[in-house]
């Protein structure tokens, strides 16, 4: 059962990691005025972190399904 298993713990760890990345002070590191490949640094970084987070959650959740 995933609830008690490794996958559940991994998801909680991912949550903690996400909460850290989406908040001060990490956020302030991303908040720069110079562009990132022509895009606003903060905007681009938030989406990248977001996408990575979703990918990690997907990997954990779907792996646990096996």
């Amino acid at each position: 059962m995933m609830r008690r298993g490794l996958a559940g713990q991994r998801l909680v760890a991912t949550f903690l990691g996400g909460a850290l990345l989406f908040n001060y002070p990490v956020l302030s590191l991303l908040d720069r005025s110079e562009p990132f490949f022509g895009m606003p640094m903060l905007w681009a970084c938030l989406f990248i972190v977001w996408a990575v987070l979703i990918a990690v959650v997907a990997w954990i959740a779907e792996r646990g399904a096996r």
Partner: peptide, 24 residues
Amino acid sequence: GGVWFLPIYLGPTLAMSLSWVVLL
């Protein structure tokens, strides 16, 4: 407010990663 629309959607992302603990 620029990127300030995002927390409304980042929050659910974080909450969903806890769904196996809470929602289940």
